[in-house]
Amino acid sequence: MSTLAQTMMTARPADSGLAGPGELDRYSYPEPHAAERVAPPSWDGPDTELGRAGRRAAGSRGRGLHGQLVQQLGQMIVSGDLGADRPLVPEEIGQRFEVSRTVVRESLRVLEAKGLVSARPNVGTRVRPVSDWNLLDPDIIEWRAFGPQRDDQRRELCELRWTIEPLAARLAAGHGREDVQQRLGDMVEIMGHALAQGDGITFSRADAEFHTLLIQLAGNRMLEHLSGIVSSALQVSGGPVTGCDRPNEVSLTHHARIVDALAAGDAVAAESAMRQLLTVHPEVERVVPAPREH
């Protein structure tokens, strides 16, 4: 096994979304009218520790206060706990989550960039309809996958992968980049060792890296832009939806078949192996049919 395994384990820093020096002042959130203030969002639901618990959960992912608040508010918006019927008042958010106004305003800025909220003069900051959300944003994918829309999100991700990845495998077979193909082989080797040791976490990390590399090898920049979506799909599947979601010998075999087809420059075989991989589990066959063997 190459030293790539150690590199693969290294977490990639996420974009903080923080404003640069001097940007915060020009991005002021308007104060809502007094009439609107009497109807603040209902922060206290059945779980009165929701805010603090959310901060602890987000903190385990290595995020600061700003990222933690984005995580908590994003989850509440996607789950429907925060709706468009009431404004999001910075002071009330700050008091509820015990963070500064600056952290609140920066967090709302990030949520606005994701299409979840909008800030308008004399109206305040409000939740936008789902049709305005950036549904391809990795954070929104995650929040939907673990919220009330989890079934729809996972089905939609599966369908999207079925569209993207067989095409990527076909295109990758024609590029012959031995360095990337070697890295794909390394990922299969890592997955094999992880499977033998019962190490599901390492298997999943190598799996995600495999699919990201494959899309990059396709040589299509628009497809490459979607590689983060595939990674998110693998991370939030939450159950045996495709052959990638549960470490087993069948999944490993299909990954190896893809690598062999790429090495041989066989685009048809690479595409077929990817389709087989994405339809290993019977649950998927309700979404997409298994490919026919010729």
Score class of each variant (00 low, 15 high):
Glu112Tyr: 11
Ile77Phe: 02
Glu91Ile: 13
Glu112Ser: 15
Ile93Lys: 01
Glu106Pro: 09
Asn122Glu: 08
Glu98Ile: 07
Arg109Cys: 05
Thr163His: 08
Thr102Gly: 08
Arg61Ile: 05
Arg161Val: 04
Pro138Gly: 14
Asp132Arg: 15
Arg170Asp: 04
Ala173His: 04
Arg144Lys: 12
Leu73Tyr: 08
Val99Glu: 04
Ser79Val: 01
Leu135Ala: 10
Leu116Met: 15
Pro121His: 09
Cys158Asp: 10
Glu156Tyr: 06
Gly62Trp: 02
Glu92Thr: 12
Phe97Ser: 05
Gln153Ile: 07
Asp85His: 13
Leu88Glu: 02
Arg144Ile: 12
Gln149Trp: 03
Gly124Arg: 08
Gln72Asp: 11
Asp85Pro: 05
Gln71Arg: 13
Phe146Lys: 14
Val103Arg: 00
Leu82Cys: 06
Glu91Val: 14
Val110Cys: 05
Gly64Arg: 10
Arg161Asp: 13
Trp133Pro: 01
Arg61Pro: 03
Gly124Ala: 11
Phe146Cys: 10
Glu159Thr: 13
Gly115Cys: 07
Pro90Gly: 06
Glu91Asp: 14
Cys158Met: 13
Val103Ser: 02
Gly174Ala: 11
Asp81Gly: 06
Ser131Thr: 14
Asp137Ala: 07
Leu135Cys: 06
Gly62Ser: 07
Ile140Ser: 00
Gly83Arg: 07
Val127Asn: 00
Val103Glu: 01
Gly174Gln: 12
Gln153Ser: 11
Ser107Phe: 03
Leu171Arg: 10
Val70Gly: 04
Arg128Gly: 03
Ala113Asn: 15
Asn134Trp: 02
Pro87Phe: 11
Ala84Lys: 06
Pro90Asp: 05
Asp132Asn: 13
Cys158Val: 05
Trp143Thr: 03
Leu135Phe: 02
Ile77Thr: 04
Arg101Phe: 08
Val117Lys: 14
Glu156Gly: 04
Val78Thr: 07
Val70Trp: 00
